[in-house]
Amino acid sequence: MAFLSYLISGLGLGSVYAIIALGYSMVYGIAKMLNFAHGDIIMAGAYAAFFAMTAAGMPLLAAALISMVICTLLGVTIERLAYKPLRQASSLSVLITAIGVSYFLQNASQLMFGSDTKIFPSVLSGSFSLFNGRLSVSYLSVLTIVICVVIMSVLTLFINKTKTGKAMRACSEDKGAAVLMGINVDAIISITFAIGSGLAAIAAILLCATYPSVYPTLGSMPGIRAFTAAVFGGIGSIPGAFLGGLMLGIIETLAKAYISTQLSDAIVFAVLIIVLLIRPTGLLGKKVSVKV
């Protein structure tokens, strides 16, 4: 029973990683860049929700909506100002710019909100028991898993069934050809950033519901984890990001429970390395062969 309860909390944590990784992976698939500032958009979303709930006294859903709007605007603005001028630049220049944006967001929030840790209001507490009380499952884990599955399904439908989704797939396949087909590539990239950042806001609230503290560098560790999850599943692939996130959450929770809390980081990354050795493009990644 203990194993099952660890598994469920691992799935909950993994769902949060998966939501972040979805944003990471979509941006990578279409803009072909590692957006290191993605984690800091989570941080911005967490602060937005925190102030909406404590200072403005809004209910959770309204705060979530506000946080999503702010993150979406922030994501699109960053893309326009910092990444768009670098479309033709080398991928390393874009990477360094993303790091610069990440520093900027962290330090700006430290200046605006102070470096102290703020306690996020309790969102959803309580649990229900199964198997005559031998297994207790928190409502939060269930909610997180459900939200993650819903997001993943909606996103898959969106990508596969709508015209915009089709345009997105075209952009990720071949930008030059997409332009010739009359697709507005800049608009598609903006939409991708908007979706990714909106997802980051949802992840922020779920993350803060589990670990209720808000501080300026809140996003960097989940950011690295989500990046790992996206690569784990095959970067650029939406089901891959979902699977990678869940696996990472489960491995981390089980490693903490059964092996060692201090070494859980090392174990997660060791598993990643082993997976990449067996499948060099991640679990569900496409193998690209280069023509000579």
Binding site: A82, L86, T97, G100, F104
Partner: peptide, 15 residues
Amino acid sequence: LIYAIVLIAIMLISN
């Protein structure tokens, strides 16, 4: 903050 802005500015200007 200034350091971050300098970093972004160098990248934007050099490209």
